[in-house]
Design a binder for these strands. Sequence first.
DNA 1: AATGAATGAGGATTCATTCAT
DNA 2: AATGAATGAATCCTCATTCAT
Lengths: 209, 209, 209, 209
Amino acid sequence: MTRQATRKQRANGVESRRRILDAAVEIAGERGYEGTSIAAVSAQCGLPPSSIYWHFKDKDDLIAAVIERSFETWLAAVELPGEETGDPRERVLALAANVAKSLVDAPDFLRLGLMLALERRPTETRGRTVFLQVREIAGARIAQVIEELFPALDAAAVHTLTTYAVAGADGLFVQREIGGNSVDLAAMFELHARLLFDAATAMNAERTQ
Amino acid sequence: MTRQATRKQRANGVESRRRILDAAVEIAGERGYEGTSIAAVSAQCGLPPSSIYWHFKDKDDLIAAVIERSFETWLAAVELPGEETGDPRERVLALAANVAKSLVDAPDFLRLGLMLALERRPTETRGRTVFLQVREIAGARIAQVIEELFPALDAAAVHTLTTYAVAGADGLFVQREIGGNSVDLAAMFELHARLLFDAATAMNAERTQ
Amino acid sequence: MTRQATRKQRANGVESRRRILDAAVEIAGERGYEGTSIAAVSAQCGLPPSSIYWHFKDKDDLIAAVIERSFETWLAAVELPGEETGDPRERVLALAANVAKSLVDAPDFLRLGLMLALERRPTETRGRTVFLQVREIAGARIAQVIEELFPALDAAAVHTLTTYAVAGADGLFVQREIGGNSVDLAAMFELHARLLFDAATAMNAERTQ
Amino acid sequence: MTRQATRKQRANGVESRRRILDAAVEIAGERGYEGTSIAAVSAQCGLPPSSIYWHFKDKDDLIAAVIERSFETWLAAVELPGEETGDPRERVLALAANVAKSLVDAPDFLRLGLMLALERRPTETRGRTVFLQVREIAGARIAQVIEELFPALDAAAVHTLTTYAVAGADGLFVQREIGGNSVDLAAMFELHARLLFDAATAMNAERTQ
DNA sequence: AATGAATGAGGATTCATTCAT
DNA sequence: AATGAATGAATCCTCATTCAT
């Protein structure tokens, strides 16, 4: 076997892994954890089951990797293009618009994540753990923005607003998943952002007095 | 009790059906559609799998029945004790408090429902269809209340507020499912209700001018 | 309950039995012994499985009854309208034409019978036994006709011709089952009868010299 | 042989496939399609059911493969050792003797095939389709021989004689299956061949004049 | 880096049958 | 004369996983 061929093989390792994850994200996003069979992923990506096990320790590991990669994909879609200055209201609305767009463009992460989150199986899956962790990170970031914009708020208020912000995002995403294009996610996120901003402003003013 | 009765309790279809549904609602609420095995339901309710198939055509049929019954259970828990008069704000807050309480007391319906709703399998499950239908009914009822309280709103506005109301409820429920008792669902629903009421009031005033 | 109603019930017993047999003959003729499930018969006739067990001891008993009844139906269709005199050749040809017609009109008996006959399960089914018995009877009748028409033939020759006659009938029936209407059963049976008659005539002449 | 080899014989797909087919041909030849349970095949060949499903998509696929292979086995048993010259009568008789012998030696193909052929289930099995196809091939070959030997016959006559030839073979085979060794298949096939040959000769002469 | 072959455990579902009413 | 309810055993087939190559 020539060195060429060897290099080719190695390069294919990355490519194969990608193909498997592509297949898995699709199927897991359709059917959840239990519904995702290795055989189905194999059929989707064209590689035999044993090859999937060469790349991933077990099904749990595969799903966790799916969550991780789809989170990164989503994160890349949300990330704001800097400009953290300017009018607070505008900043919040821009953030919301961005999140709405990212959830339309890369819905796999949240769809699969919520499916895993709602499950309560006796032995926790790694995928669920990973989802809850990255979700925690996202929540912390939101809390941070709120603290910056409304410095008078105490920890409890920040926590309440953060929870409400995330809940709204989850709920609107679910509505969109159910209702399809008939739900204008951008408009709904704008409403959500406005209500939140006004509520935060009011709470902030209350405590400033 | 005679010896015969000991060996085989007297046939009682209604009771058996109830036991099966009780078992299924618990397991399906924890593990979703795929995670609910007939064997597990059988073990939980004490009846053999073949008996489950006497009462339900197949797994799909069972899950659909579970959704139906748990919806009714939940509906009975939400239903307000009349008193439709009084201050609108109070009425909305009371409604929200009731929904929050019902979701804590009878969460099976919504937990399983959301799991089914998020699935996108090629061949739709009957359970999902049923959930979407009853959800539609619940949405219509909310829209009705909004129309009553804010008669100046046009259809689009009512639709937006309804969607946001339902989304908030779903999202907060999910937060509670993930965060457990650390999430004060009653308080969050109160916040949700207040924001919605204020937003609706403002929109209503706008259009009244 | 009035006497009228009681009599009605009793009358229905016969009717129910008939409905069950009608359903069973159809399904067994399509799928054979193993392929005939009590549930399928139940669905076909509209009576619950337990009612089928009221009329028949078990599945074996049901299939045996199906064979018996369909044999009688077929027999009624073959039976010649007397006239045993006349030209031997004509008599044989008329017989063959009649058998061909009966097999087109009432094929259930032979189709199901052959399916059972070809099976070799460890525990013999009663249906198979019954089929082989009635088949034996039919064979004996053919032998009798041959003996009458060709008295010079010895037992071995009669046996050979009988076997060949029956085999031809079976084989042509199978061809018709496979080929459908494209097989002209009447014409084929006429050919079969002619060849047989000529062969028998020749053998008879040989032994007469 | 190492300890590992004892625990799990070296993977050998071809050999395993053969073992499964060997087991299946025996069981299916005895019990037909429905009567052939995967568990029974598994027990017969020593491989677990899941291994059978590695080699064959489903039961249908297995039975179809059984038909295919047993047809080839049978074909190898019939194939004449050349010598296509010589007296036509001798050639036909030799052919018949060969077929008779092959059906005694390798009866699985025809026994299972006829069982499948007689079935009329709504959803056709692949095994039945395969059987009808190979049967068609066998029929075409017989027609070819008839055409060669009796060139004056028209297509309709050839078709009739072919149908009768095949029907006789099927019917005699059934007689043998039912009657066991008491039926001298060789003798019966000789009779069948003679009657056919004489009939064809007569028909040929008729058309030559 | 990959895969053909294998497998025990479990999946949903149907089976023939029973029995109290 | 009939049937609603039940059931243990069997059905076909898929599961996640392993391992020698």
